[in-house]
Amino acid sequence: MSRCDFKIVLLGSEHVGKTSLVLRFVNCRFNSGTPYQNTIGAAFCAKRMQSNGKDFNVGIWDTAGSERYEAMTRMYYRGAHAAIICYEASSQASWTRLRHWLQELRTVEEDCKVYLCCTKKDLLDSGAAQREVDEEIVATYSQGLRGHFLTSSKTGENVDELFQKIVDDCVADMRVMKGVEEARVQLQKEDAAYRAKHKDYCFC
């Protein structure tokens, strides 16, 4: 029943800024005033995007990152076309955790395109946070992956670029696009069947 062409999942420890990243991308907002609230379970958002002159519906799963829900997390990255794994440069622990997600993805969803995202760039730029994670190690790690982005949800820097790159990569991938086409055809069939069955009931 999913009406989304691409499925993207956000992974990473609690508090690294996953929810803020989605909020910035989907609603162009950043909540700096409100105190931190952890995500309950997982949250789903959809957004329309363009690539190569065509429209696509992108579904984004924002996960909680807490140990409590870990057993459930697989469900969110099953079938994901892309994963954004977030970490904070000022937190070695969040980087350590990132490697765990990477391994999980490799075993469960090997075709998933993986992007690393270093969050809260504005804090690094202003000197409010100190880099703890070694840049060279990050560079080595991201070699085998689809990309590494340094973003700020506060200023919006690199946020659209990250998601645009993901969608462009998906669109350029023949195999993914074949699946998308098939899903669309299938959905049209279902819709037609549904409408035929409910002729007497008008939805508008």
């Binding site: 609603n27 609230q37 309950i40 829900y69």
Partner: peptide, 9 residues
Amino acid sequence: SFKTAESWT
């Protein structure tokens, strides 16, 4: 967080 997205928990 329920206000900004659909949650599944």
